[in-house]
């Protein structure tokens, strides 16, 4: 039984290790200084998809990402780890999308891909932490959803059984195909890139990327079609423009403030024995500890 699986993935700025050069002199975030990475929980999602593919021969794993042209890196990364193909959804028309407009665009692309049993995505992306796109895509497609998935326990022709990780425990649920699953960071880590697949896919490019490179690249996909990363603009999928981008986003950002801490009067200690002992004594005397 081969399953057709779509994995939703996002390229995100690595907000986990924001160094000093990540803030500009005016206090705004310097996105250019942050490396762009495969959203961590989307890698957990990819692993769940690849495991299903390992078990169910004849399955395919298709990556779908929306973002700027450079997000094709995400597709390549996925191919290196075992995905079969990928789609990059990229257009100015999608700029400024909030989660709802993003979900709408993704759901239109999924409708165009059409043939699928399962959609798997990371629970949330580290640049927004909203956890909304998965459930919203499910709603737009009218599919059941399983969020906070930690492990896919079994799958047969009709249904899938999934272990969910909740705040205070675990839950096992069963859902019919097709459905949407969002995967928690506590799930298994993604397998590394395979050397063979790197060799196979290192020249995989979108049409825009090929056009920006030498002549040879343009012909490259003629005899090796798997090196073509499908690139879709807004015109390649069926959409109603009122639901796209800024117009299609009910939430608006009113203001953005950079974080400025109200400085307290802090006492600065250099950590000598005498200072530490004095501090501990003070905390004991004022009943903070002890």
């Amino acid at each position: 039984m081969g399953l057709k699986i779509i994995v939703l993935a996002k390229q995100v700025p690595d907000t986990r290790n924001v160094g000093k050069d990540a803030m500009k002199a005016d206090g705004t975030v310097n996105r250019a200084a942050l490396p762009a990475i495969f959203n961590p929980e989307d890698l957990n999602a990819l692993e769940q998809a690849l495991r299903l593919k390992d078990i169910h021969k004849g399955s395919t794993v298709t990556l779908l990402t929306m973002g700027p042209g450079r997000a094709a890196d995400i597709i390549r990364e996925g191919l290196y780890r075992g995905a079969d193909n990928g789609f990059l959804l990229t257009d100015r028309a999608f700029a400024g999308s909030d989660t709802l407009a993003t979900s709408y665009a993704l759901s239109c692309a999924i409708r165009k891909i059409k043939d699928y049993d399962l959609i798997i995505a990371g629970r949330q992306a580290i640049d927004g932490d909203t956890a909304q796109v998965g459930p919203q895509v499910a709603e737009k497609l009218g599919l059941p959803q399983i969020t906070y998935a930690e492990d896919i326990l079994s799958a047969d022709k009709k249904k899938i059984v999934v272990k969910r990780r909740l705040e205070r425990g675990v839950e096992t649920v069963e859902a019919p195909f097709p459905c949407v699953i969002t995967v928690n960071g506590s799930a298994a880590s993604c397998r590394p890139r395979a050397a063979k697949l790197i060799m196979k896919y290192k020249h995989a490019r979108t049409i825009s990327e090929r056009q920006n490179q030498s002549e040879d690249y343009i012909d490259l996909t003629a005899d090796r079609p798997y090196l073509n990363i499908q690139e879709w603009s807004v015109n390649d999928i069926e959409t109603d423009h009122q639901w796209l981008g800024l117009t299609g986003s009910p939430t608006k950002v009113k203001t953005i403030e950079n974080v400025v801490f109200q400085a307290k009067e802090s006492k600065v200690l250099s950590g000598t024995d005498a200072e530490i002992e004095e501090l501990i004594k003070e905390l004991i005397v004022n009943h903070t500890i002890g």
Partner: peptide, 27 residues
């Protein structure tokens, strides 16, 4: 540090054991 009442600049691995030591001594 800006929201801290006390700031100890140094190596955590070296400061914490001394905090434990002085707490045991003084409590």
């Amino acid at each position: 540090n800006k929201i801290a009442d006390y700031v100890i600049t140094g190596d955590v691995m070296e400061i914490i054991p001394r905090m434990i030591k002085y707490y045991k001594k003084n409590s």
